[in-house]
């Protein structure tokens, strides 16, 4: 579920502090891969939560799944922006 979106985002923030050094030294693009994977995961989680509406019956479950969907989208957005950064900026720039 999209409850994982914040976790994915948090992990990617940390990777963003480590991977550019590796990418710069070895000319790889791990930062890019990790970020888009994270963005995909977050968006997929959010979508699955919002589709969950149809099957959930209890009022509380509906509340929680809607909340999760919104939170998931809220984290997919910065992840996409970070993806844009990996496309635009080189890992070696200081």
């Amino acid at each position: 579920m999209a409850d994982g979106a914040p976790a994915v985002w948090a992990v990617n923030m940390q990777l963003g502090q480590m991977l550019p050094y590796v990418d710069c030294r070895r000319e790889t693009s791990w930062t890019l891969t990790a970020t888009f994977a994270a963005a995909f995961l977050a968006a997929a989680g959010a979508l699955s939560s919002s589709c969950g509406h149809a099957v959930t019956v209890s009022r509380m479950m509906l509340f929680i799944s809607r909340l999760s969907a919104l939170v998931g989208f809220a984290f997919a957005f910065p992840l996409l922006l970070q993806g844009a950064a990996t496309l635009l900026l080189s890992a070696c720039e200081r």
């Binding site: 922006l81 844009a84 635009l88 900026l89 720039e93």
Partner: peptide, 20 residues
């Protein structure tokens, strides 16, 4: 808001590139 924020962010990235 999403559109404006995205625009500003990308613009900021482009400026960073230009400062190289």
């Amino acid at each position: 808001t999403v559109l404006i924020i995205s625009g500003l962010t990308i613009g900021s990235f482009y400026t960073t590139r230009g400062l190289n």
